[in-house]
Amino acid sequence: MSNQLNPQDTVLIVIDMQNDFCHEDGASAKRGLADITAFQACVPKIDGLIGQARAVGVPVVFVYMTLDDTTISEAWTNKHGTGMSIVIKGSWGADFYKLYPQPGDAVVEKHRYSGFIGTNLNLILRSMGCKSIVLTGVLTNVCVESTARDGFMLDYNVTLVSDACAGSSPEAHAGTLANIANVFGSVLSAEQVGAAWSAAASPVEASA
């Protein structure tokens, strides 16, 4: 486990923490698409991990989703309908929710569930020398899981932070955690990830 969280080749990824998903005035809350209280509860955990990542030199990547006429496909419309106006590019709903990139952070705009599809995320990670990704954000069972699956297929060590992400329901959240742990990577708490980073950054010398 420790090798998969080595600060020298690990990247923390924050997925889709945006107003339309997380804010009480966003599309998810207004349309009853999900219980956003679970999404909002992730914020302190993610914020804490971001702080710990910065302290030990782990890069932070913010991934966010947008849609517009150039990226809404027939397949997307067939599944979600023409009235699925959410995270529209340039709108308030697409803006970040409470967690914001800082200078030096990479920011990746995506148009599908996975952070790897049609983006430069893989190039960014490879350029950083990344071997392991730590995933946080929403929704556990949609965009986070899609990114985790693709990340594993691209040969990254995947860690999903159980209390720093939230799903469309507790059952969906739990299902993804089980699926990732069984097939695609590891599932740890924010405390466990932070402790591993701290231990790697300040190793305790064995007593003589």
Rank of each mutant, 00 (worst) to 15 (best):
K79N: 06
C143I: 13
W197M: 02
V56Q: 05
V14C: 05
R126K: 08
S186N: 15
T159S: 12
E24V: 08
G151E: 09
C22R: 05
V61N: 01
T136G: 04
T77V: 12
Q52F: 07
L188Y: 14
G104P: 06
F62Y: 15
D9T: 14
V158P: 02
E145C: 01
S169W: 09
C165T: 09
L125Y: 09
P203A: 11
I46Q: 05
S207E: 15
M128W: 15
F116H: 00
E74Y: 01
C130W: 11
H173D: 10
G194Q: 01
Q102N: 10
L135H: 09
G57R: 03
T119S: 03
A199W: 04
T71P: 02
M65N: 12
L49K: 12
G118F: 05
S91A: 04
T136D: 09
A195P: 01
D9I: 07
A201C: 02
I180K: 01
A53W: 06
I72W: 10
G57S: 04
L99S: 02
A181Y: 06
S114L: 06
I117M: 15
C165D: 02
C130V: 15
M153Q: 15
P170G: 07
G194W: 04
A75W: 02
C22M: 08
W197F: 14
V142D: 13
E24K: 12
N179V: 07
V61R: 01
E24I: 10
A195H: 07
D47N: 15
V161Q: 05
C42V: 14
D25E: 14
T119Y: 00
N141L: 11
L160E: 07
A201P: 01
C143T: 11
A199N: 07
I133H: 13
G118C: 06
T70P: 00
P101W: 11
F184K: 07
A164Q: 04
A53G: 08
C22P: 00
H111Q: 00
A200R: 09
N3Y: 11
T176P: 03
A41D: 13
G167V: 05
V60N: 06
V63I: 13
R31L: 15
V161S: 08
V161D: 12
D69Q: 10
N122P: 00
Q18S: 02
G118R: 00
G104Y: 10
V144K: 01
Q102K: 11
E74R: 08
L177W: 05
V63D: 02
N122M: 06
S168V: 13
K30H: 07
R54K: 10
A201Y: 13
W92P: 00
H23K: 00
Y156R: 04
E109G: 00
M84E: 14
K110H: 02
T136E: 14
V108N: 00
E74G: 10
P7L: 08
S28T: 13
E145T: 03
D155F: 13
I117P: 01
D163T: 10
G115S: 05
D25V: 03
H80N: 13
V193S: 12
A106L: 09
R54I: 06
P44V: 10
I46F: 11
T66G: 02
M65V: 01
V61E: 06
I180H: 07
L154H: 11
L5I: 12
D25Y: 07
I72V: 09
H173W: 06
W76S: 12
Q4V: 12
A34F: 12
T10W: 05
G129M: 13
G51W: 14
S85I: 07
A164P: 03
I15D: 03
